[in-house]
Simulated scan of single mutants.
Amino acid sequence: MVKILLINDDGIYSNGLRAAVKALSELGEVYVVAPLFQRSASGRAMTLHRPIRAKRFHIPGAKVAYGIDGTPTDCVVFSIARFGNFDLAVSGINLGENLSTEITVSGTASAAIEASTHGIPSIAISLEVEWKRTLGEGEGIDFSVASRFLGRIARAVLEKGLPKGVDMLNVNVPGDATPETEIAITRLARKRYCPTVEERIDPKGNPYYWIVGKLVRDFEPGTDSYALKVERKVSVTPVNIDMTAKVDFEELRNVLFGNT
C-alpha cells in the first residue's frame, strides 16, 4: 500500500490540511503529523533543547494523525522514526503562497525539503490568500481547486516519479484559480519580500521591534512569482536540495588562490 506523509505548518487544526487529506486518501494511506500550533516561517528549525510531546488526533481519511509541539521539520523526523519510510511527502495546503528563494524560510517548503533529504519525493503546496487570513485555520477559504491540483500532481509523482535531479516540487495556486487554470513550470524568483525592522515604543517608553517586509512587485518572466502574480497560473517549481553553485571549481580556485 502506498504510504503518504502529510505535514502542514499551519497546524493540526488547519482546514488546508484536511483538504489535503481528502485529496491524498484516494491515492494511499495518509499519515498526518503536524505542529499543534501555527509554525509559519520556522524554516528548517529543529527542536533539540527539550523533549517533543505528541497527541493523537482523529482526522477523517487519515490512517494516523498526530499533533506535536514542535516544528514542521520535527514532524518529518518524528514520522520517519515512528512509521518508517514513505512513498511521498506532502506539505500543505498552506495558507498563503510560498515563492522565491525565500522558501528556505517557509515551514511549508522546509518540511518538504527535510523529507527530500531522506530520499522521499516531496511536494510543498500553497494557496494564495490575503495576508490577514494566513494565520488562522482557513475558515471560509475554498481549498477545493488547490486540492484538485494536489491530487493531480501527487498522482503523477507516485506513478512516474520525479525526474533525475529534482528532489521536490514547490507548488503555488492562485486564489482565483479554477480547475482549468494553466500550470507553468517555473524557476524560483530571487526575492518576494524586502525585510526591514520597524521600531515602536511600548507604553513604558521602551523600544521594541517588528520585522516587516515590503513586497517586491516586479518579477522576471519565467519565475514562480511572475507565473502566480502576473500570469495567474499555477506555478510548479522543481527544486534540487544540493545548493552547490554550478561553477567551474578551478575558476573559483583561481579567484581565491590565484594560479599557484
Rank of each mutant, 00 (worst) to 15 (best):
L150R: 05
L150T: 00
R152L: 10
R152I: 08
A154F: 02
A154H: 00
A154M: 02
R155W: 07
R155S: 15
A156R: 14
A156H: 14
V157R: 02
V157H: 01
L158N: 01
K160A: 11
K160R: 14
K160T: 12
G161E: 02
L162N: 04
L162R: 06
L162Q: 05
L162H: 06
L162I: 05
P163C: 05
P163V: 03
P163F: 04
K164D: 14
G165D: 12
V166A: 09
V166S: 09
D167C: 04
D167S: 07
M168V: 02
M168E: 02
L169N: 01
L169H: 03
L169A: 07
N170C: 13
N170M: 08
V171R: 00
N172L: 03
N172I: 08
P174M: 07
P174F: 06
G175S: 11
D176C: 09
D176E: 14
A177Y: 04
T178A: 12
T178N: 09
P179A: 11
P179L: 08
P179H: 09
P179C: 05
E180R: 13
T181Y: 09
I183F: 07
A184R: 11
T186W: 03
R187S: 12
R187V: 12
R187F: 12
A189E: 06
R190L: 11
K191S: 10
Y193L: 13
Y193C: 07
C194F: 13
T196Q: 10
E199Q: 10
E199C: 08
R200K: 15
R200D: 08
R200I: 04
D202L: 00
D202I: 08
K204W: 13
K204T: 15
G205N: 02
G205D: 02
N206Y: 13
P207C: 07
P207V: 03
P207I: 08
P207W: 04
W210M: 12
W210Y: 15
V212W: 06
V212T: 14
V212R: 14
G213S: 10
K214S: 13
K214N: 15
K214R: 15
L215D: 15
L215W: 12
V216T: 10
R217H: 12
R217A: 06
D218N: 15
D218R: 15
D218L: 11
D218C: 12
D218E: 15
F219A: 00
E220I: 12
E220N: 10
P221A: 06
G222E: 11
T223Y: 01
D224I: 02
D224Y: 03
S225V: 06
Y226A: 01
Y226R: 05
A227Q: 02
A227K: 03
A227N: 04
L228H: 07
L228G: 01
V230E: 12
V230T: 15
R232P: 03
R232C: 01
